[in-house]
């Protein structure tokens, strides 16, 4: 568990009393909820961005998640850490959004999807033709982003929560409502897949 996840800080860098703020927010204290939201906002946004891979979608989704958290706060029983519950709401909201987006894409013309995918995968010729280090770095960055996008949302989330948030298998299992063994497997396969997809850039 990262200290930031369990002990977030306010704008002045001081730790915020999460249980107290949660208790106040549950009784309708909007200011307390605002303090909680602002403390966790960057991390929740980062997690959502890791899942949906689009800053605009992550921003919209982030707002929806916080509104949902406000509405559902009375269902938080307090038997788990607040951030576990919060990440779970965010995780399942993102999965819903990804599924809806996928359905919308399926409804769209299939041939419209292919050029987009090609555009994402293909490295611009200008980059491949430039020998300088910056172009190479950009090329690797594009390849890395593309490889990450090719993981399933479940594999990507498990990997991101582990590598970026530093959460344990048990914590990720609680957030995603999965078994510990499933999380272990997802992280392993995510690493393997990324390694395979990026092998030509080693």
């Amino acid at each position: 568990m990262t200290p930031a996840a369990s002990n977030p800080v306010n704008a002045d860098g001081e730790p915020i009393p999460v249980p107290l703020l949660v208790q106040k927010a549950r009784s309708g204290d909007e200011a307390a909820f605002g303090e909680l939201m602002q403390a966790y906002y960057p991390r929740v946004y980062g997690m959502l961005l890791g899942m949906v891979r689009n800053p605009d979608d992550a921003r919209d989704l982030s707002q929806q998640v916080w509104v949902k958290v406000w509405k559902k706060l009375d269902t938080f029983k307090g038997d788990a850490d607040f951030y576990t519950w919060l990440y779970r709401v965010a995780h399942f909201s993102a999965l819903d959004a990804i599924r809806k987006q996928k359905r919308r894409r399926e409804v769209d013309l299939l041939d419209a999807l292919e050029p987009n995918r090609d555009a994402d995968v293909a490295v611009p010729p200008s980059l491949t033709s430039r020998p300088d280090d910056q172009a190479r770095a950009t090329e690797i960055d594009v390849a890395f982003q593309t490889a990450l996008e090719q993981l399933s949302p479940e594999h990507r989330t498990a990997l991101m929560l582990r590598e970026v948030e530093g959460l344990s298998y048990d914590e990720i299992a609680r957030i995603t409502k999965s078994r510990r063994g499933t999380i272990m497997s997802r992280i392993f396969y995510a690493r393997k897949s990324m390694q395979q997809l990026l092998k030509e850039y080693r």
Binding site: A11, G34, M37, Q38, A39, Y41, P42, Y45, G46, L49, G50, P55, R59, S62, Q63, W66, V164
Partner: peptide, 12 residues
């Protein structure tokens, strides 16, 4: 890069 497009206060 995971810098949010807004400050937490603006997002709030």
């Amino acid at each position: 890069p995971v810098t949010p497009p807004q400050t937490p206060a603006a997002a709030w």
